[in-house]
């Protein structure tokens, strides 16, 4: 049930998604894996949209070199945990938001416990070993996951629905290499915002999701290309022959 204050605060979007849509956002628990370049814009828009509960997972501390894109972290936050920095800013933006901050590295051992019974996961991580661990946990719990990744001018996003769409391992059976990547802040902003947009559509039931479609963003000429995806029947994570076989693949 929405309060009078909430009905007023969200009136411009309630006019679009209805009170029912707003109530769905309020009732939702979203896990945000990563509070960096993708996670900051995604979390910002989910927070101000009125998502009720956010769990933010990140093990890093804020560094000076993060500040060109990680907009929830400021100069004063250098050296502090990203999760704490993000929680403070998001809480100030929307005091009605319930935020849990988890300062941990996502691994095959803890991913399942960390995502719990969330309605949705945002994969805003910066490395594929952790992404694979998150993917396996999401499949195990049947929780949809919106995956995004960026580098330089380039980014991509897709929505994984366990049992229905290609999973992360189907799409990327082998991890791209590299650890430190060059990045223009706006690229992370665009893809992170698309992740929040996809999340709001999923939670309110509106629009058409990026199911079995990989949206590839090329910021050089601001072009978008779609790659059709399909499940891999012999996928090491979600293939029928591997169902229930545990997380032998992709654990960091």
């Amino acid at each position: 049930m929405l309060t009078e204050r909430e009905i007023h605060r969200y009136s411009r979007q309630i006019a679009f998604i209805g009170e029912e849509g707003q109530e769905r956002l309020k009732a939702a628990h979203v896990v945000l894996a990563g509070a960096g370049g993708l996670g900051c814009p995604a979390a910002t828009y989910l927070a101000v949209a009125g998502v009720g509960r956010l769990t933010i997972i990140d093990s890093d501390k804020v560094e000076m070199t993060n500040l060109n894109r990680q907009i929830l972290h400021w100069e004063q936050d250098i050296g502090r945990n990203k999760t704490v920095s993000a929680r403070e800013k998001l809480g100030a933006m929307n005091p009605d938001l319930f935020i849990e901050d988890v300062c941990e590295v996502i691994t095959g051992q803890n991913a399942s416990a960390l995502i719990g019974r969330a309605a949705l996961i945002i994969d805003a991580l910066d490395n594929f070993p952790a992404r694979y661990a998150l993917n396996l946990a999401a499949l195990e719990h049947g929780i949809p996951c919106i995956h995004g990744a960026v580098s330089g001018y380039d980014g991509h996003i897709t929505t994984v629905i366990p049992g229905e769409t290609a999973c992360l391992q189907c799409i990327f059976p082998d991890p791209p290499g590299g650890s430190e990547f060059p990045i223009i802040g706006t690229t992370a902003g665009i893809i992170g915002l698309m992740q929040a947009h996809e999340a709001i559509k999923f939670l309110t039931g509106g629009g058409t999701l990026l199911k079995n479609r990989l949206l590839i963003w090329d910021g050089r000429d601001s072009s978008v290309t779609f790659l059709d995806l399909e499940r891999d029947p012999v996928c090491r994570a979600c293939g029928e022959c591997t169902q229930g076989a545990g997380s032998e693949r992709g654990e960091p």
Partner: peptide, 10 residues
Amino acid sequence: VAIYPPVAGG
């Protein structure tokens, strides 16, 4: 033929 080397950062 389209070739996409996926990005990985976040």
